[in-house]
């Protein structure tokens, strides 16, 4: 299991690396909070909201902050696929067609988000310098198709969770929220396709990390949740617990996403 070993190395490297904060600060530099904050509306349905640990993730980030966070993830994905497509012999035939389409979408998301950020009165962050070898742990990421696709799955499943985690911060602007949702579901289509190409189900069972990489456990942590709006869904239906966990994707906090992404941002 050479692949597993590689990922284990990768995990150790990640845990031991200290300059992540600096990297993150550079990549996600604070933007002036010029745009309206997410509206948090008091509702008559408070009784509905018993104990929801995911509740109201309004971190107070402005819309521009959220879009710049999304832009950085899209930069990462777009560059990853572009580099994969530029690598001789890595992607051929139908797989090349699939990855080309995904890469085109990510590049379009970059341009769309830049426009949206400018339109909201903000400044798009610069593209960070990425290191997809994660400090030399993946020197063959662009020559080994297995590793390339495993990382692609991790990036797409992370992207889905990242957008979901920010939706509540975009409630103050319906048009931006809708666009973010429209990107979010495209990321989910990508994730499903890459997972299925790799032989996994298109959806996530429990918190199973099917990348073959222990270090990607963080990408799937919490996906085994069955509490929705305070209800334990297993008590509402005869559908199996495994199926219930598949039927709800779970959000990730900005920090959790940054912890994953920062592994691939060069110091």
């Amino acid at each position: 299991m050479k692949f597993l070993h590689l990922f284990n190395e990768f995990e150790r490297g990640a845990n031991g690396s200290t300059p992540q904060l600096t990297t993150r600060r550079e990549a996600f530099g604070q933007i002036g909070r010029t745009v309206g904050k997410a509206a948090t509306v008091a509702l008559p349905l408070a009784a509905f909201l018993k104990s929801n640990p995911i509740a109201a993730q309004s971190s107070g980030d402005s819309i521009v902050d959220v879009l710049n966070f999304a832009l950085t993830l899209e930069y990462l994905e777009a560059e990853y696929y572009a580099m994969g497509l530029d690598s001789d012999g890595l992607l051929t035939g139908d797989l090349r067609e699939t990855i080309s389409l995904i890469g085109d979408h990510e590049a379009a998301h970059v341009e769309f988000l830049k426009s949206a950020i400018s339109g909201a009165g903000g400044d798009p962050v610069d593209k960070p310098d990425f290191d997809f070898t994660a400090g030399g742990n993946f020197n063959n990421v662009f020559s080994n198709q297995t590793i390339f696709l495993a990382l692609a799955q991790a990036f797409e499943d992370t992207g889905v969770r990242a957008y979901k985690g920010q939706a509540a911060n975009l409630m103050g602007n319906g048009a931006v929220l809708t666009a973010a949702l429209q990107i979010h579901s495209v990321e989910a289509r990508h994730a499903s396709e890459i997972r299925r190409i790799r032989g996994s189900k298109g959806w996530i069972t429990n918190a199973e990390n099917t990348t073959g990489a222990g270090a990607a456990d963080a990408v799937y942590m919490g996906e085994d949740n069955v509490m929705q709006l305070g209800f334990n869904v297993t008590t509402l239906t005869s559908v199996s617990r495994n199926h219930i966990t598949e039927a709800w994707d779970e959000p990730l906090s900005k920090q959790a996403v940054l912890d994953i992404a920062s592994l691939f941002i060069a110091d």
């Binding site: 979010h184 989910a188 289509r189 499903s192 298109g202 959806w203 598949e246 709800w248 994707d249």
Partner: peptide, 12 residues
């Protein structure tokens, strides 16, 4: 959001 991404996974 938790449901729509699963629908998108299905659709794909």
């Amino acid at each position: 959001g938790k449901i729509v991404s699963v629908e998108a996974r299905h659709a794909a």
